[in-house]
């Protein structure tokens, strides 16, 4: 009650008009385009047409019948699931090894985080070089006696795989840092207590570490899900969705429709993607919030 009174007394020190710049920029250059997008997605606007008119949900129905769009949805799902699992499993594993008191942990932490500060264009083209037929990956495989002359990027069966590897390479270190922070926040006494109670290390992990890591897990999993669904630059800089449409993703389809001048359709795909990302994110957050504990 006391705090409430105090707030009223000093609110004039925090006038609402100081919110104007941030709200103005955000609304004009972010929210209005999204709202505008809802309308544009209902029109037949493309580069060849002079008269633009509303055509209802036609864009949506024609998109979902497009076979390359279907392929892109499947690929995006494969990509998202693969990276959410791999980024997080690897990052958590690395973070837990780090908490064992390694001597070179400062060096290692710095190295593992470096990919996160590089541009997608750098990482994408680098992986292009690594996955060439005579590229670094095949050279290393050959060195270990596995003869391999595969064109990883240009082959239908491995193109998407290279994008997944690239993404994991880029982001595992980032998630690792969050897990390190999360692990460091767990008091050591808890572990000692559980050791005295005779808990095995698996039980310690399952019933102590994991529940207390929920905040870090929430951040990492939401971040990687959002990143997974919005995947674009990884594909553009590595496979360009090829060969054909074998490794295309939803973000790539937007780019393609946009490039061919189908503005209405490109926007319709953006809208579909936005709705899916928002719902999945809310669902995941809710799920983890319900699991959150404090001891």
């Amino acid at each position: 009650m006391k705090a409430k009174k105090k707030k009223c007394r000093t609110d004039f020190l925090y006038p609402k008009y100081l919110l104007l710049p941030v709200i103005l920029i955000f609304v004009v250059f972010f929210i209005i385009p999204v709202i505008g997008g809802c309308f544009i997605s209902l029109t037949n606007w493309d580069i060849t047409r002079s008269g633009v008119r509303f055509i209802g949900l036609d864009n949506y129905t024609s998109i979902v019948q497009d076979s390359s769009f279907k392929k892109s949805v499947v690929n995006t799902l494969i990509f998202a699931i693969s990276i959410v699992v791999s980024r997080n499993v690897l990052a958590l594993l690395l973070a837990m090894i780090f908490s064992k008191g390694l001597k070179t942990r400062t060096y290692l932490r710095t190295i593992f985080y470096i990919p996160a500060i590089l541009s997608y264009v750098v990482v994408g083209i680098m992986f292009n070089a690594l996955f060439q037929m005579d590229g670094t990956v095949n050279q290393i495989l050959n060195f270990f006696g596995i003869m391999c002359r595969k064109e990883w990027v240009a082959s239908a069966d491995t193109a998407l795989f290279t994008v997944i590897v690239e993404d994991i390479w880029k982001w595992t270190g980032f998630h690792m840092m969050i897990y390190i922070a999360g692990l460091a926040a767990i008091p050591q006494d808890f572990y000692e207590a559980s050791r005295i109670d005779g808990a095995s290390s698996w039980k310690q992990f399952r019933y102590l570490t994991l529940p207390l890591l929920i905040p870090a897990l929430t951040v990492n999993i939401t971040q990687s899900i959002i990143g997974g669904f919005r995947v674009f630059e990884q594909v553009l800089t590595l496979t360009k969705g090829g060969p054909g449409h074998e490794s295309t993703v939803v973000g790539m389809m937007i780019y393609e429709y946009f490039g061919r001048g189908f503005y209405g359709k490109a926007t319709a795909i953006t809208m579909l993607l936005s709705v899916v990302v928002v719902f999945v994110t809310i669902f995941v957050r809710r799920f983890f919030e319900s699991k959150e504990v404090s001891y």
């Binding site: 946009f258 490109a266 926007t267 953006t270 936005s274």
Partner: peptide, 22 residues
């Protein structure tokens, strides 16, 4: 409300065509 409102920007991808139009 504004807290939730701004957090949309972390989730929703940029909407290209209307942005260019604007």
């Amino acid at each position: 409300f504004l807290g939730t409102f701004f957090s949309l920007g972390l989730i929703v991808p940029m909407c290209v065509v209307p942005t260019i139009l604007l």
